[in-house]
Design a protein around this nucleic acid. Structure first.
Lengths: 255, 255
DNA sequence: ATATGTATTATGTATTACATAATAAAAGTA
DNA sequence: TACTTTTATTATGTAATACATAATACATAT
């Protein structure tokens, strides 16, 4: 019985090899068939053109109907593929004009998905960690780019903090005001967008039971002291001070 | 002449107010009309459900046809809205089963758009900067999570580096092997994905004329020394050492 | 009892028609 | 002539319909 099956398989496989093979070899001979949908292929096709630099920013791509004809699929498929590119921010399409390649706003895409409620807990914790990493690591850029006006601004922020906050309490608004300003000083728009995107995450992580119970903090570097270092200190000093300032958060992560 | 126009406008506005108004007031009375497309609205509608927690991970959303009936638009519109969510990684749709809410792979979305060739130069530079920030800032996580095996692995990587690389040359493969391992040690998958996504950017930025001419470097902390610190030092020591190790890149950024 | 066929169902693809907005060309007016 | 207003034109946006395809559950046969 099996003999016939093998025979049939072999005859099928003859298209590829023209030889009789044992069953085991036969199985290995099958290539994974391409299950991608038409849209997948068209999308890959278009993205491929970008990567091969056949298309660059500002280029207009053919009209939907033309693409449909060129690629031999329906306009529906083309539209769906183009739509994907559009959601990714790779193209912009205007009526009458058609679609043009654009420099993608990577974070625009991400921020819609950045909903603390639907991110799994591990991801949330990781984003929280990245914040700490960024704020410690940004020191050199702060010193490189800070202006007297920035210092002034920071001092104002600090001066408006309730006294209690300066000592031990945690006040989310002032945190944002102060640390947000730091991101701004780095002059790195991408990093700033990243921070902005993460804000709801911080808030969420703080209020969820995701982190360990907040330990009692004895003493940590205050915003005021951080500013002082920004004014008179060095990147190295600031890194360590910031690390200390964030001790509260680290402690909750590391337990 | 203008009188008639005002009269007409007033009659139009009568739907809202039933009173005659002077031209200035009329202008202020117009509410910004919602120019969003149907798809935009449906998308906002669905995303809104996520944010309000009416929908959570694993929930299945109504069939396309049902949605079309509920919202009073064509299936085309529904499909396009769902597609957007799908591209953002918010849902997955299977034949026969329908669509279910998923925990989005934020970086999966981004990485398709992360094509050095179509990113503007400023963004590229900023991503490059973020890499430096991350690697300096990750110190505490390295020390918290590194294992003896990791140390061993790092030592092997270092030992396989050409002698020249240890002193002054820059070898992209070894850079990736070494620094990539560091990201791995942090245990932060998100950060790892981020790094992986950025790799082509680094390569591109290095080879493009984007950065200032590479200055002659006298002496900097080597990979070998970094490992030594990881083994016997402190997070603080490592941060500073890493900063020094990256001096090469900083110099090119800061001139 | 396992494997194979079959029905069902929801998404995927195709086609057609029309709506809408942006542009360019034409016509009208000062 | 210059300048505004109308009017085509054109490509994307929306709609409706029909059929293809893949996944599942159920029935059937060996």
């Amino acid at each position: 019985m099996d003999f016939f099956k093998i025979a049939i398989l072999n005859s099928v496989l003859a298209i590829f090899s023209f030889t009789i093979m044992p069953l085991k070899d036969i199985k290995e001979s099958f290539k994974q068939v391409d299950t991608r949908s038409l849209v997948d292929k068209v999308e890959a096709n278009l993205v491929g053109l970008l990567h091969q630099r056949k298309l660059k920013i500002g280029d207009v791509i053919p009209k939907e109907i033309e693409l449909a004809e060129i690629l031999g699929v329906s306009r529906t498929v083309i539209r769906e593929a183009l739509l994907r590119l559009r959601v990714m921010g790779l193209i912009e399409s205007k009526k009458k004009k058609g679609a043009v390649i654009t420099s993608p706003d990577l974070f625009g895409v991400m921020s819609k998905g950045m909903n603390p409620h639907i991110l799994d807990q591990e991801s949330l914790k990781e984003f929280f960690e990245i914040r700490l990493v960024l704020e410690i690591g940004m020191s050199d850029f702060l010193f490189q780019r800070i202006t007297p006006n920035d210092i002034k601004h920071l001092k104002e922020v600090v001066s408006q903090e309730p006294k209690a906050t300066q000592d031990y309490l945690f006040n989310i608004e002032h945190e944002i005001a102060f640390h947000g300003k730091l991101y701004e000083i780095t002059g790195n728009e991408t990093m700033k967008k990243f921070q902005k995107m993460l804000l709801p995450v911080f808030d969420y992580v703080h209020h969820s039971g995701l982190l360990k119970r907040q330990p009692v903090i004895k003493k940590f570097v205050s915003h005021k002291e951080l500013v002082k270092i920004l004014e008179n200190g060095t990147p190295e000093l600031f890194r360590n001070a910031m690390r200390n300032h964030l001790e509260n958060h680290f402690a909750r992560l590391f337990e």
